[in-house]
């Protein structure tokens, strides 16, 4: 198949997304990337699980149904081996998948599985975390390694959670917001990575 050697490990788009060639993206037409997002090798995103019933179908009229399965904001970082899949549930007696919405500056650690309904901005998810179906994670949340977030859990802003099942163990200290910034991490991967500023 390959006519020439691959030009680099990552595909870099015009909007600054860096997508590894070895990532598995299923149903790419239903995955929205906000820009400057890094998708590392072995990441799996299930874009084929789209919602089957539309909310308030009468009011939308002739508008085309939205088929976005996963929407990701800017400066997100999906580490090696993590998996994003839209959550599913029974709605009015019919099974449907819901859109997985992720804000900006969200870090997902290696080997984590995310099936949340929505994740706010500036969220840090550690390694080997399982985020259950239809969980809602607000802004500035830190989830430590190995946490199991149960289905339908709502995590308030500025909290630190850990444990199996996840419990609130603390708050993000004042002035600790800069640690969530992922602009520098974005520069350290890609086809010509730059070393992280010390």
């Amino acid at each position: 198949m390959s006519r020439r050697p691959p030009r680099g490990e990552y595909i870099e788009t015009d909007t600054g997304n860096k997508v590894a060639r070895k990532a598995t993206l299923v149903g790419t037409q239903n995955i929205m990337l906000g820009g400057k997002t890094v998708i590392m090798p072995d990441v799996m995103i299930r874009g084929d699980l789209i919602r089957t019933i539309q909310p308030s179908s009468q009011s939308t009229g002739g508008a085309p149904p939205s088929t976005t399965a996963v929407s990701i904001g800017r400066y997100c970082f999906l580490s090696r081996g993590c998996c994003l899949r839209p959550p599913g549930r029974l709605y009015k007696g019919v099974f449907t998948y819901m859109t997985l919405r992720i804000g900006d500056h969200v870090f997902v650690g290696p080997g984590s599985v995310v099936q949340a309904a929505s994740i706010g901005s500036h969220v840090h998810i550690g390694a080997k975390v399982s985020v259950g179906e239809l969980a809602i994670i607000k802004d500035y949340v830190r989830i430590l390694d190995g946490t199991v977030v149960p289905p339908n859990m709502v995590i308030p802003s500025f909290s630190i959670v850990a444990g199996q099942p996840a419990r609130l163990i603390g708050e993000v200290p004042e002035g600790g917001h800069e640690a969530f910034e992922l602009r520098n991490l974005y520069k350290t991967v890609g086809n010509n990575p730059q070393p992280a500023p010390s």
Binding site: D48, I50, L90, V94, T96
Partner: peptide, 14 residues
Amino acid sequence: KGLARQIDVLRRMI
């Protein structure tokens, strides 16, 4: 029963 409904949806998607 819920799983049967989920399978109905998955059959159309996969």
